[in-house]
């Protein structure tokens, strides 16, 4: 479909509609972040992660409280795990995957089903690029897993945890998707990268420049 770059302030719809990256003024809908317009669809190219009920995210335990844990979820808002909901204990710096159970009006999220992630590598990309990393029907992720043998956990909040297999190559591919998201022929180029690099030994991978600052895995800082 024909796509068009649209900028904050541009008209998205002549009726009031609730859409990602849009706002309503005077009965019309306008774009609030740099986006692509494809027909009626608005695809934001930028944005901050705002937790929604049911999202699976990857968080970092940031504070321990009597009532539970405070978790950094790569959003401008705090989130918590209640001590009542869990049996295991965590330490500050632990990386966990969790599900968003509730979000209050100031976007504070309550997380449940925390599972500690370990022995892998954590990277961070922009949350709006997560759908590209997953690909249509999970095709992109499947491609990476096929070549690297890694387990890849993708959080809705833009954090990705890579474990087992050729971790370095998986990370390389993921960061390439992030920095070249929305360019044409991306799937082919990722396939080519995996094809070429998987034949080398892991030490010889030449990592592309990450688009977003990479965080060291938990426990390393």
């Amino acid at each position: 479909m024909e796509k068009q770059l649209i900028l904050p302030g541009a008209l998205a719809a002549t009726t009031p509609r609730r859409m990602d990256g849009c706002y309503v003024d005077d009965g019309k809908t306008f774009v609030s972040v740099v986006s692509l317009k494809a027909g009626d669809k608005i695809i934001p190219l930028k944005g901050h992660y705002v937790p929604r009920i049911g999202d699976y995210i990857i968080g970092i335990i940031s504070e321990e409280r009597f009532s539970g844990y405070e978790v950094d979820i790569n959003a401008p808002f705090p989130s918590t795990i209640s001590a009542r909901d869990i049996r295991e204990t965590f330490q500050v710096g632990d990386v966990v995957s969790a599900k968003v159970r509730m979000v209050d009006e100031v976007h504070t999220a309550q997380l449940v089903e925390p599972r500690k992630l370990f022995a892998g590598r954590l990277i961070e990309i922009e949350s709006v690029k997560v759908p590209r990393v997953i690909g249509r029907n999970g095709s992109m992720l499947a491609l990476i897993k096929e070549y690297t043998g890694s387990d890849v956990f993708v959080g809705k909040n833009g954090r990705i945890y890579v474990k087992n297999g050729d971790i370095a190559l998986s990370v390389m591919a993921l960061l390439k998707i992030s920095s070249e998201a929305h360019t044409s022929g991306l799937t082919d180029r990722i396939k080519e990268l995996l094809e070429v690099e998987s034949k080398k030994s892991p030490q010889n991978h030449v990592a592309p420049r990450p688009a977003v600052q990479e965080r060291p895995p938990a426990g390393m800082y």
């Binding site: 997560v130 759908p131 590209r132 997953i134 929305h182 360019t183």
Partner: peptide
Amino acid sequence: ALEAKYGAAAAGDDDSQDESAA
């Protein structure tokens, strides 16, 4: 200036995850 940085994205194909699957 914004088109210079973000314009390339408009030319790309869209094989990202479907809205329904998200």
